[in-house]
Design a protein around this nucleic acid. Sequence first.
DNA 1: TATAAATTATGACAAATATCATAGCTGTTT
DNA 2: AAACAGCTATGATATTTGTCATAATTTATA
Lengths: 231, 231
Amino acid sequence: MRVSNDIINCKSCIYRFMLFNELSDSEYEAVNSARTEYIVKRGDVIRQEGQPIHSFLYLRKGLVKLYKTDKNGKDQILSINKPGDFINLLSIFSNSTYKYSIAALEETLVCNVELSALLAVIRENSDFALKILNRISKISDEIIENRFELNQKQIKGRVAHILLFLAEKIYRKDTFRMPITRREIGELISMTTENTIRTISEFKKDGIISFDAKTITIHDYNRLKNITKTG
Amino acid sequence: MRVSNDIINCKSCIYRFMLFNELSDSEYEAVNSARTEYIVKRGDVIRQEGQPIHSFLYLRKGLVKLYKTDKNGKDQILSINKPGDFINLLSIFSNSTYKYSIAALEETLVCNVELSALLAVIRENSDFALKILNRISKISDEIIENRFELNQKQIKGRVAHILLFLAEKIYRKDTFRMPITRREIGELISMTTENTIRTISEFKKDGIISFDAKTITIHDYNRLKNITKTG
DNA sequence: TATAAATTATGACAAATATCATAGCTGTTT
DNA sequence: AAACAGCTATGATATTTGTCATAATTTATA
């Protein structure tokens, strides 16, 4: 019952919300009663760099980006998060204010747990604390691993990497509505919008993908995977 | 007494080893008795990607690099660590084997705490667990922030960033023995060795720095800082 | 100390990426 | 439906970075 209450809309959630199964009934109630939810739409900024941190945030539905704006006003996107992800875990324990911004890429259901409730449970339950340590390490591993991968690729490999990520990790489908603009892909891979567009057009010309204004279809996974390795 | 036992050779250690001051005497003894130390010299690999994780590692003296080798056999350096730093904290809680390699950049005194002893203390002492959470978040913040900074700079800005890091964060001196080769600087900033060398030579020609085979001196901090902003 | 190996240095050229300009397309608002 | 803003598209050109070659210097080692 507890689990079904927390699982929405995403296969991987079963695995992800297991975190809460570490808790006793009373601990779970403590977290749950400190929880609020709200819906945001594409473009809404959920949290902004510099804002104070009051809560622990996770997604029940939708898609968000974690990003940071540099001094030239350009954004760099650190990660894209899906239902079940704890989207501000990296910030909670190291800073009193956000180091990154979070914005919705589509209609998104955000859950808010009062930070004090989470901290109380961590204090009570050391196994839960270790689970949090594990989760936080994995999140940071993923971001670091991602930058490591991108750094050894040129633009074609980087774009291919993102397209595969969307198809395999986010949508688990060959055809999907593109959740991010070409500019945002550029912000993910640290390339200009123009060259990102050029690269995607080239993939289309080569028959690897096809797309219209709304959706994109991946036709040749092998070739795309090859490009992430060689390009 | 406990503190003096843990402070060696580095101003920032007083701050850093405060972590252990969270512990009761018996907890501290548990950690301390599970501790061994050994000395390694420049080039020695302390831990290698893929090795199983048995211990918690920190430095009492020296300098190490955390790095990862890509499929072309090229290294990317994620961070440089100094005395007081916990050099494998990111790996401990997320994986059973190392995701990064660690190697000494100079003669280094490494401390090893049996992982089981650390975990036992974390289980007993939730404030200590929170401190570990804080530390791990800061480490990952630093690495991510670093990549964010580098991504918005061209080669001159990146090299300047590293030189300032060495002078201000590691040595706190204008003149110091260069701990890393030009190739390693390139591996830190994701640029080729040749272009890294060219850039450093250019700084010399411009009078911003001077160097011989062993040491380097920074003459114009302002100009170097400016380059990190504009370049 | 002699020799080898790695590092630093520099030039010429190739390749990748950024920049600037312009235009068509799509979706939103009035 | 018209007007607008933002996104996609593409060409021309400039800039940045990488690659390859070669040599001097430094460091490590026999």
